[in-house]
Amino acid sequence: MILQAVFLFLIPVSLALEQESSYPLLTLLEKCQSKNYQLQERLSEVQSQLYEVNLNSQKKDLELQSLKAQIAQQAALITQLKDQISDLKQTCELGKLKDLFSEELAKLREVVKSGSGTEANKAEKNTTITYTTQSKSTQVDGCPSTQDEIYVYPEIHLPGLEPFQVTCYSFNEIGSGWMEVYYKNNTSTELNQTYDQYINGFGDIFGEHFIGLEKLHTLTSQKPHEVRLNVYGGIYYEVICENFVVGGRSEGYSLKQIDGCRGDTSHFNLIQGTKFSTFDRDQDGSPDHNWARELGYGFWFGSEKLILGRNQFLDLFIRRKD
């Protein structure tokens, strides 16, 4: 009994001593576990940051490659623009020369017009007409296909119409045979005419004039013609169309055929079927405008305003193709 009592007494004491001796180890273990947890969290943070750095690095590489490609494209574009600027300079210089030539030609017209009543001028004019008529040996119905002078003044004979005089031009770059049918200067005062006057024609071939819609219809409907339009005076535009036919009175003297055009076509509303308009015969198709009245001259106006204004020159030529 005594031994049993001693044994029972010693067991709690032993357990107490064991717990007391292992307590520092447990505390140390807990600290280590806590530290390990903190290190693992820190490791996760570092790994996450490293992943973001790698991802950003890849993005930067892609951005760098994209920027290099953009720089290469811009360099190619700069080279292209330099070439275009060089071409544009040459074109502008040519346009200025053409503009200057056209303005000087317009001044010459005014000089000739102011002296057209003199005997010397009449003699020169008659001599030129005689030369052209003799070269044809018969009555002519168009401009000569070849001519030595820059311009000659034949008398044209068409069936059912009174004879009329025209100016025939020869241009170095596009040849001879161009009949001037419409001329407007930059201070136009004589072109705001009625529809009937445009049908018959009016003006002086040495100044502002229009050949007449009926004559133009007869000329272009009997034989194939091409047309050339020039606008100048601060700007220079040129259009040449291979086929040009003006309809008759019942068709409103419309552009019955106009195609094969080249040049500055975007500046002219040359649309097949467009009727001729004057201030008293508005056929431009625009419900809000009478372009002939607003601009002061007759033309084949479309519904949109023509680029040609009051302060530009206009020359319209036709040439027979046979």
Rank of each mutant, 00 (worst) to 15 (best):
V112S: 15
Q70C: 10
S135M: 12
Q70W: 13
N126S: 07
K215V: 03
L108F: 11
Q49M: 14
S102R: 06
T130R: 08
T79I: 12
Q65C: 01
G233T: 00
G95R: 05
V152P: 04
I211P: 10
E20T: 08
T132M: 08
K96V: 01
I156N: 03
S14P: 02
W178K: 03
N290K: 05
F164K: 10
H289R: 13
T167S: 09
A5V: 15
P159C: 07
E18T: 14
Q65V: 04
S116L: 13
F164V: 04
Y232T: 01
Q33P: 02
N230M: 00
D264T: 05
P287D: 03
T146E: 07
T91P: 01
S254R: 09
W300T: 10
Q147R: 00
Q38M: 06
S145Q: 09
G177P: 07
F206W: 15
F268D: 02
K122D: 09
Q139W: 13
A123I: 01
K305I: 02
M1D: 15
V112Q: 15
G263S: 01
N269T: 07
S286K: 06
K321A: 07
P159N: 10
Q165V: 06
Q193G: 06
I307R: 06
R228Y: 03
Q283C: 10
K136H: 14
V46T: 07
I205H: 12
G201Q: 10
L88I: 07
T128S: 14
S135C: 03
G115H: 15
D61F: 07
T265N: 02
Q70Y: 13
H289K: 14
F268C: 03
T189I: 14
Q90I: 08
L8S: 10
L50W: 10
L219A: 00
F206Q: 15
Y183A: 05
Q47G: 03
R293A: 14
S116N: 15
D284G: 14
P154A: 06
I211S: 08
N54F: 08
I240D: 00
L270E: 03
G260E: 01
V112G: 11
S188P: 05
Y131H: 05
Q84R: 11
Q19W: 11
Y232G: 04
Q58H: 13
E30S: 00
E93N: 05
S250Y: 06
Q312M: 00
I235V: 05
N172V: 13
Q312F: 08
G95T: 03
F276V: 13
H225N: 05
P159A: 09
R310V: 02
L55W: 04
N185F: 00
F317R: 02
T278I: 11
S114T: 15
G309Q: 06
E155I: 10
V246H: 07
G247Q: 08
H289A: 08
Q33S: 07
K125Y: 09
S22P: 04
P159L: 09
Q19A: 09
F210H: 15
Y232R: 00
L67H: 12
I240H: 00
D315E: 11
G233C: 01
K107F: 02
Q139V: 13
F164S: 04
A75V: 12
G207R: 14
L62R: 10
S116T: 14
A123S: 08
E214F: 06
N185D: 12
Y37C: 01
P224K: 02
